[in-house]
Design a binder for these strands. Structure first.
Lengths: 256, 256
DNA sequence: CTCCTGATTCAAGCTACTCGAACAAAACAC
DNA sequence: GTGTTTTGTTCGAGTAGCTTGAATCAGGAG
């Protein structure tokens, strides 16, 4: 897992095709000309790329505009179902959302980053940038920090070396030493907090789902406005609730 | 929409990369050697392809085995959220699943095929090959036929020409004339049935969601075992329920 | 009407993708 | 233990095919 992705001689054609997908993910829609400005090649090349992708349903063209095709849903769903965690976690995440009335996420680690594999919203839950499939830096949010703290030290170092510690809000931990301290704290108490470290005004708690060796295979988090998630509710009640859930999931994962 | 994907000179490199993804979708996991047998090129080439894809998190390697990365979830989710239909349909699909206790699907048309963009299961719903993101021939299932019947004739012809009418069960309609008759029937009554045409022992009803010009933008279906979905329940009750829902969605779509 | 902007096609040139051979590492047979 | 087989991986050379820029076509605006 988390192998450095240094390829000897990557295929540039593939990399550029991915750049197109990535650009469309960020910008929803683009024309050949617009994409040409973004890539570094001739317009005819971009045109050929996009037509090829569209012919295979990865892109959909609507007039001169291209966007991502829902064929990706298929690949995404297959990838997600690889994780047994998804099946185990989904019902509990739904329950948690109902109980807490806040936003619940289940995340896993892949390539040193976190991916939200499932989310459920409670009555009052807030909408943030996050969505299913969203890739995130581990150090920037509660679930990610919970995972990070429950990885072997070597893998933590590797992850930091590889991705650095980019900030997101003024509260994000961007200092290595500070992060290691935080990791110690998280290891001691068994769960992680996020005080406006990913989004201003947003608090969260995250607890790891671990295997028999106490290594994280994922995490669950509750997040909501700082005004609601505070005091004993945030400090005691939610963590207790979360720990119960992740323990249960962990046990179910260990004994299929 | 539904433009023939004939590209003048497709980029073979991209096409082969997609073949790798497709193979992994079908077979869950593969090694370089296994993939080489499948593709028609040197092992070193396959190796370079897969390493490049893995370096970009589209593939994940676990030892010598590769599988699809959950990065696709991200792309898939973005693509799905393009469809306003998804937001409108999701809550009603959930309700229908609760009410009927059967499996409900919401599908859209893309490139002459259908894609399940959302599904919900009721208490008794059966598991079939279908899953979110699944691409299907329009003529093989209830939702697809409902969509097909509510497309312009020219587009229907185009679709049949492009994809043919492959069978799936002995009941699948594989004859053009027969399909056109069926389309007329569906147009008259406003919804479509599926009598074991996609899966043996499975019945379904599908109704189209149409825009102001009565052109389909998607469809909703209820499916379940032939033993439960029969008689007046299948013939009258379910269609009435479905029509109510799709009308409501259609109106909401037209008046945002 | 002309002008402009965008998509699309095409021949020619040369980049970089493909190949096969060679190496390394692991699994296996005996 | 050694030899054998199977796997992933690297690298130089050759040429397939990708890239390019110019030319053409399509649509809108003034």
């Amino acid at each position: 897992m988390a192998i450095p992705p240094a390829v000897n001689r990557p295929v540039r054609t593939i990399e550029r095709a991915i750049e197109i997908m990535e650009y469309l993910k960020e910008n929803d829609t683009a024309t050949v000309s617009e994409m040409t400005d973004h890539l570094d090649c001739a317009k005819s090349t971009t045109h050929r790329y996009m037509k090829t992708l569209a012919a295979n349903s990865l892109l959909v063209e609507d007039g001169n505009e291209y966007q991502l095709g829902i064929r990706f849903l298929d690949y995404g769903e297959v990838a997600r179902n690889k994780y047994r965690l998804y099946d185990e976690a989904k019902p509990r995440v739904d329950e948690l959302a109902e109980e807490t009335e806040e936003k619940i996420w289940c995340a896993v680690e892949e390539h040193g980053r976190s991916v939200h594999i499932y989310g459920a919203q409670g009555k009052h839950s807030v909408q943030t940038y996050a969505r299913v499939g969203h890739r995130n830096y581990l150090h920037q949010h509660a679930a990610g920090k919970a995972i990070l703290a429950h990885l072997p030290d070597s893998q933590i170092t590797e992850t930091i070396d590889r991705h650095g510690l980019p900030g997101r809000t003024p509260q994000t931990i961007t200092d290595r030493d500070e992060l290691w301290e935080e990791i110690e704290t998280i290891r001691d108490r068994g769960y992680a907090f996020n005080f406006q470290e990913s989004v201003e005004g947003l608090h969260a708690v995250g607890a790891p789902i671990t295997d028999e060796n106490d290594v994280a295979i994922g995490a669950i988090s509750v997040s909501g406005p700082a005004s609601r998630l505070e005091g004993p509710f945030l400090r005691d009640e939610l963590p207790t609730l979360l720990l119960g859930v992740v323990n249960e999931i962990g046990i179910n994962m260990a004994h299929p």
